[in-house]
């Protein structure tokens, strides 16, 4: 990684080295929690926040610049909006099945909806990086 360039921002070498090892594990754990939310404790929101926490850790240890190269502000904002929109569209699909005569209270099979939550939550990353400037 471009360590020399961002030596001035962020924390010390110990923190950086540990974070380089740990961030991948945190990200993978978040993905696991999102994908297995319907079988084990957890779920879309918790997994999304854990993934956002990986980026928060990057921001705190390496500084804002490195973290923004991994996931730029525009991409995070788009993910957030796409998540909310997908949620809305799926909700309208449920409405449509009710109008179509199938008045079952069950709207969705869980996987898709659980997955969409991940993007809705990356907005937290956006918020946390902002006051760091």
């Amino acid at each position: 990684m471009n360590g020399e360039k961002n030596q001035q921002s962020g924390m010390t070498t110990i923190v950086r080295t540990v974070c380089r090892w740990v961030v991948g594990c945190i990200f993978l754990f978040g993905v696991y929690i999102v994908l297995y939310g319907h079988l084990t404790p957890g779920g879309g929101f918790a997994g999304g926040v854990i993934i956002a926490c990986a980026f928060v850790l990057l921001t705190l240890s390496f500084g804002k610049e490195v973290s923004l190269t991994k996931l730029s502000k525009g991409v995070a904002s788009e993910l957030d909006s796409v998540g909310a929109l997908m949620f809305l569209i799926i909700a309208l699909l449920g409405m449509w099945t009710i109008w179509g005569g199938n008045s079952s209270p069950i709207l969705f099979r869980n996987i898709i909806l659980v997955w969409t939550f991940i993007s809705s939550v990356l907005a937290v990353f956006l918020y946390v990086t902002l006051p760091l400037a």
């Binding site: 939310g37 319907h38 079988l39 084990t40 404790p41 779920g43 879309g44 909700a91 449920g94 209270p105 069950i106 709207l107 969705f108 099979r109 869980n110 909806l113 659980v114």
Partner: peptide, 18 residues
């Protein structure tokens, strides 16, 4: 009904999805 073993998830994302 929902196919989710975790009942909290099934309540949150199926029965009470709105």
């Amino acid at each position: 009904d929902t196919g989710a073993a975790n009942l909290v998830t099934s309540v949150l994302l199926d029965y009470r999805a709105y």
